[in-house]
Design a binder for these strands. Structure first.
Length: 220
DNA sequence: TGCCAGGCCGGGT
DNA sequence: ACCCGGCATGGC
């Protein structure tokens, strides 16, 4: 990114917020539900994830202990609407096993682990990659980690702020090093990027009319 | 109808 | 260190 990253990021944030208004994301009723949602939403529409979570709620299974006891095949059927249900059932199980064995099934206890150590441990769980780990840390744990997703990369690349070949960690550091270490800001900023992607930054219809970010060299 | 969705893993160069 | 196929349902 060019010289004035701080100003550029603040300007993008201001424009997103002005356009969409505050989104106040809280994608779940409990930290555990948010973690489950973070895994289920991998490359999947959130609407489908809501159905899967509704199934778990109706079955009274949306607690770590209850869900860990569900047989894998049954778990897969419950989360069927979220897509990739076989692989996601295994990924949920891997996270549940981690949570149960390391923290007795307590998200609160899990979040007492120092941040950088917890991030490493989450990344070591099969099925949890950088975006999923960071979503759990930020949205379930209220910890100051910036979540980078496909829309974030796409928007910054398309507007010339990134080359497009930067990796996840590079982009995450770009945000964390150029914004105040503020959980509410990280939360809202990522939510705004996702909303931008939904409306204006699809892969196919080139977002010529994107009203949010200014082109490289524009004044605002 | 075909493309896309808030990725990640495992195997191959 | 990249690159790619596979995973799968539901909305537009």
């Amino acid at each position: 990114m060019h010289g004035n990253a701080k100003k550029t990021l603040r300007r993008i944030y201001r424009k997103l917020l002005a356009h969409f208004g505050p989104l106040n994301w809280w994608p779940g009723d409990t930290p555990f539900e948010i973690a489950v949602g973070a895994i289920l939403t991998q490359n999947t529409n959130w609407g489908n994830v809501e159905r899967a979570i509704a199934n778990l709620k109706e079955s009274k299974l949306l607690t770590p202990r209850a869900l860990y006891a569900v047989p894998l095949k049954k778990l897969a059927q419950l989360i069927r609407p979220s897509g990739y249900f076989n692989i996601k059932a295994k990924r949920l199980r891997a996270f549940l096993e981690f949570l149960m064995k390391e923290y007795g099934g307590s998200m609160k206890r899990m979040f007492r682990t120092p941040l950088s150590e917890l991030r490493e441990r989450l990344l070591a769980v099969n099925g949890i990659g950088p975006e999923t780990a960071d979503s759990i840390l930020l949205y379930a744990g209220n910890l100051p980690v910036f979540v980078v997703d496909a829309y974030t990369k796409r928007a910054l690349s398309r507007h010339g702020l990134l080359d497009g070949n930067e990796d996840y960690e590079t982009i995450r550091r770009l945000f964390e090093e150029n914004l105040p270490r503020d959980v509410a800001l990280y939360n809202e900023f990522h939510a705004q990027f996702v909303n931008l992607g939904k409306h204006y930054c699809r892969p196919r219809p080139l977002c010529d009319e994107c009203p949010i970010l200014s082109e490289k060299g524009a004044k605002n």
